[in-house]
Design a protein around this nucleic acid. Structure first.
Lengths: 137, 137
DNA sequence: ATTATAATTGCAACCAGGTGCAATAACAAT
DNA sequence: ATTGTTATTGCACCTGGTTGCAATTATAAT
């Protein structure tokens, strides 16, 4: 379901600022940092306050329209599509790879069996070195 | 090897501020947040600047004397003892459980086989719900 | 088309954490 | 004990992100 419809359904308003932020996130093929989003918004619509942007991103996250995660002390956002929930990000080249969900299943079950612990593994972002950067030493 | 010896070996100085911070981290049986450390330091030695404390913690981390990790957008620190590198933290009661290292081995090998990716799994902190809080609903 | 209402914005101030720099102090050498 | 070197501190300011609040504006009702 389209993000703008989700907004309307909740009695929330589709302001020009929100429309712009939604467009930017939809058009991006990879994840965007908060800074990139702020720059992009303000280049097309100067004067939009950063708090508006942060609040919109927070709202969209709550509505499950975007995913927010943290890499390297920075927040990153991307449009929420069903299917691939985990990411591995190379700390050298910054490349982001969608990671099959099943890879974390074994950890989830182990933590459950050994500690009775139910881990929050809805959207894991893991950093490391990708194959290219490993070989390129 | 004692933290103060590690300092001296590198030509670094054991100032009263550093001695105090080391004491606090050594005496703590669980992890401490940055805020807790700052409060504790300043109650015993008013006037110590927060930047001194953050810099000391950063230094101790580089020397592998303390582990720094992030939970809930806050930094936590604890004394580095060999053996248990992973933690699971309950997002409800805050309890921290040391987690056997082997649990993450399967993910590491899967990521390597399937994507040629070498994950940074030196000290993983995972949040979720512990068995007590799961049952206590 | 006007109006009422509540969601949203921009602003200014705030927070945790980090940084450049001049003043201070730990330690080694004398 | 004094001195010189240089690591360390405190300060003031910066950063990304958050929040309270008064002014604005999208939307529904008339």
């Amino acid at each position: 379901m389209s993000c703008s419809v989700v907004l309307k359904e909740k009695g929330l308003r589709l302001t020009p600022q929100r429309r712009l932020i939604l467009d930017i996130i939809h058009e991006a093929d990879a994840h965007l940092t908060a800074e990139e989003i702020i720059n992009s918004v303000q280049s097309k619509m100067p004067g939009v306050n950063k708090s508006t942007i942060y609040r919109t991103l927070e709202l969209l996250e709550e509505l499950n329209c975007v995913f927010k995660s943290e890499v390297d002390d920075k927040f990153i956002y991307h449009h929420a599509e069903e299917g691939h929930h985990h990411h591995i990000i190379c700390r050298k080249c910054g490349k982001s790879i969608d990671c099959a969900e099943h890879i974390f299943h074994s950890v989830e079950t182990s933590l459950n069996k050994e500690y009775g612990f139910h881990a929050d593994f809805k959207h894991v972002v893991t950093t490391g070195l990708c194959s290219d950067c490993l070989n390129k030493v």
